[in-house]
Design a protein around this nucleic acid. Structure first.
Lengths: 338, 338
DNA sequence: GAATCAATTGTAAGCGCTTACACTCACTCT
DNA sequence: AGAGTGAGTGTAAGCGCTTACAATTGATTC
C-alpha cells in the first residue's frame, strides 16, 4: 500500500544541500539571515525531496506554534459560524492557524478541551462567554495563556473580551416589544445553567417587564436547549396557556425558527395571532416566513476584533482590552404592533 | 500578569514521586504495567502538580497522535455540521480527537491544509468528495496517511469512501419531478469547478431530462456558490424567463432557501406559481415555508461510518472499503403536481 | 538453598526541530 | 599591515516525551 520510503527530515535536506541543519532551519524561518545563493540551493533541495517541517518537533524546539485555539459551544447550528469564520480569516492573515473544538455546552468538556489545546501548544485561546469555574481561569493564568472571551462583555468584569451586554441587548428588544403594546409576553430561553449569555438575555426581559410596572414573576418561561425542534415544542406548550401570549420572545434565532415553524403547523398566523422574536440575526432569520424580528449581532466585526486583540496579547503588545460592541434591532415581519 | 512558576513536566512528577520517568509514562499510557501502589502515588503527584502531558513531545516520541484531521469545504452553513458532529462523536468514543479546517471550496487551500494536518501528525484524514489533483493523492500515499472520502461514492473509483452517488440521487429526484408533470425545469447549481458533488447533481438532472426525451441543452442553469443570497439572486433571474419555469431545482438546500425567500419577496406563491426543490435535507429544509422537497442524505450515518472505517484503517484492520449509502426523497410542500 | 521466572522498575537513546554561541572570512579603517 | 567589523555558517545542547533493553526484586520450584 504505502511506499516504505521514509519521510525526509531537516537532516536529510541539510545533508543533500551540503549545509548544516541550522542553515536549513534559517532558510525556513529567518530568510534574511541566509545568503541568497545558499537559500536558493536549500530551497531547491526542499522541493526535490518534498520536505515538510514536522510541526510537533518545531513546536517543541521553538516553544510556540502560531496556533490559536477556539472552543465554541456548538457547531450544529450557525450561531457561531460567521463570527468564527471572520476570526479565522483574520488570524490567517497574520500567519496564525486556528484549531476549533466544540464543547456541546458542557463546562466539563470545555475544561478538558482547554487543557487539550494548551497541551497542543496553542499560543492563545478564544472562549465564549464568562461562565466557567475559577479553577479554569487560574489554570490559564498559571500557564500564561492569553485568553479572549467573546459573545459577551460585561461592564463589571475586566477579563479581556469582545462582545456585547446580552442583558442590555435583550432589554432593549423587550422595551420595544412592550412599547408596541404587548402585555402578555412568554419566553423560550436557552438553558441558563453554565450559559451566561442565555441568563443575561432572560434577565433583560425580566428587567424590562419590571421597569414597565409588570410582574416578571408572572411571565411563562420555558428553558430548553438551542435546537429547532425544542423551540417548536416549547412554542406549542406556551400556546396552550389561556389567555394566549401576544408575543413569544426566544433566546435565539434557532428557537424562534422552531416556534415559527410550529405556528404554521398549528395554523396560527404570525404576527396576526402571535408575534415572535429572536436573537443573533443569523442568516436563517431572514429566510423565515415572516422574516424574524431579532437582535442584530455584529458577528464578523466581533470575530475580527477578537483575532486582532488576541494576537496583540500573544505578541505582547496588549495585556487584554475589553471591547463592548453595539447591537441593534432588526425589525421585520414577525413582530407587530398591538 | 502570569505567574512565572514553570510548567511541570514528566521529570518533575518523576522526581517528586521518587520514580523514573518511564514509570510515570507507563502510569499514563499502560496502567497495567505498573503496580497499583506505585500508580496511586504517581497519580497523586500528578494531581498535586497539575501536570498535563505535552502533546507535541508525546507525538514526537510515540509517532502517533490519536488525532484525525478533517477538511470540509465550509463551516458557514450547516451542510456538513451534522455529519461532522457524528464523525466527531464516534471518534471520541474510540479515543481519537478531531481537528477540523475549512478550505472555503478552494483546492489550493485544501492542499495546504492537508499538509498542515499531516505535519501536525494526524493519524488519518477525512476529505469531502473526489475532486483534487493526483499529486495530493500521491502525497498522501507516500506519507502513508489513511484517508477517507465522504459525501460522495462513485462506482468507478475505488478509493476508500462513504457516501452516495450524487448524480444518481439527483436523477431520482428529477425523475420524480418529471413524473409529476413538470416540463419547464430550471436549475440553480453550485459551482462545478473543483466540486464533483455539484457536478454530479447537475448531470443527474440532465440525464433524467434526456431520458424523458427532452433536450438537456435547453435547460436554464445558473451556477453560483452556496449562499442564501446567491440562491435568491439566481431565482430572480430565472423567473424572468418567458415562459416561466414550473420548477426550479436547486443544488442544495441553502440555495433553495434563498429561492423560496425571494419567491415570497416577488409575491410568487410556492408551489402554486412555481415549485422548488433542494438537496441535503438539513434542518433548514423543514422550517422553510412551505417546507422543502429535497433529497434526504443520512448525515449522521455517514459520519459514523466514516469514523469507524477510518479508525480501522489507522489501526491496520482495513485497507479502506467503499460504502455506498442510500438516499431518499423527502416529499414536502414546495413541489406540486402539475 | 540455588535456580528459574514473571512482574516491576530504571536507564538512556532517540524523535526532528530551534537557537545560543562560536567560528570563519572577506572587508574596512587607522 | 594589523585590528576591528559584521555577515554567513556551523556546533551542539536541549525541548518533554516514549520505549527497547537492562536490572532488580520476590516468589516459586526442585
Amino acid at each position: 500500500m504505502t511506499t516504505p520510503r521514509s519521510i525526509p527530515t531537516l537532516d536529510d535536506v541539510a545533508r543533500v544541500a551540503g549545509v548544516s541543519t541550522a542553515t536549513v532551519s534559517r532558510c525556513l524561518n529567518e530568510e534574511q539571515k541566509v545568503s541568497a545563493k545558499t537559500r536558493e540551493r536549500v530551497m531547491k533541495v526542499i522541493n526535490e525531496l518534498g520536505y515538510t517541517p514536522n510541526f510537533n518537533a518545531r513546536a517543541m524546539a521553538a516553544k510556540r506554534t502560531n496556533t490559536i485555539g477556539a472552543i465554541i459551544p456548538t457547531m450544529e447550528n450557525a450561531i457561531f459560524a460567521r463570527g468564527l469564520q471572520a476570526f479565522q480569516e483574520t488570524l490567517y492573515a497574520s500567519g496564525y492557524n486556528l484549531l476549533v473544538s466544540s464543547s456541546a455546552y458542557q463546562p466539563q468538556l470545555e475544561a478538558e478541551q482547554i487543557r487539550a489545546l494548551v497541551a497542543r501548544g496553542a499560543d492563545g485561546l478564544l472562549l465564549i462567554g464568562y461562565a466557567r469555574g475559577q479553577e479554569v481561569y487560574d489554570y490559564l493564568e498559571r500557564r500564561g495563556i492569553p485568553t479572549m472571551l467573546a459573545w459577551a462583555s460585561l461592564p463589571d468584569r475586566d477579563h479581556a473580551s469582545v462582545g456585547f451586554d446580552n442583558c442590555a441587548a435583550m432589554r432593549m428588544l423587550a422595551d420595544r416589544v412592550l412599547s408596541m403594546g404587548h402585555i402578555r409576553i412568554a419566553v423560550i430561553s436557552g438553558i441558563i445553567e453554565g450559559n451566561d449569555r442565555a441568563e443575561g438575555r432572560l434577565r433583560g426581559i425580566k428587567e424590562s417587564v419590571a421597569a414597565h410596572g409588570l410582574d416578571p414573576g408572572q411571565i411563562p418561561v420555558i428553558e430548553t436547549s438551542y435546537e429547532i425542534e425544542n423551540g417548536a415544542a416549547a412554542f406549542e406548550t406556551l400556546m396552550q396557556i389561556d389567555p394566549k401570549p401576544t408575543v413569544v420572545m426566544c433566546g435565539n434565532d434557532v428557537l424562534a425558527a422552531g416556534a415559527i415553524s410550529k405556528a404554521h403547523e398549528l395554523g396560527l398566523r404570525i404576527p396576526d395571532d402571535v408575534s415572535i422574536t429572536g436573537f443573533d440575526d443569523i442568516e436563517l432569520a431572514s429566510v423565515l416566513q415572516p422574516q424574524l424580528t431579532t437582535v442584530h449581532v455584529p458577528h464578523r466585526e466581533m470575530g475580527c476584533i477578537a483575532a486582532k486583540e488576541l494576537i496583540d496579547m500573544v505578541e505582547g503588545r496588549s495585556t487584554g482590552a475589553k471591547q463592548q460592541l453595539a447591537v441593534s434591532i432588526s425589525m421585520r415581519g414577525s413582530l407587530r404592533q398591538i
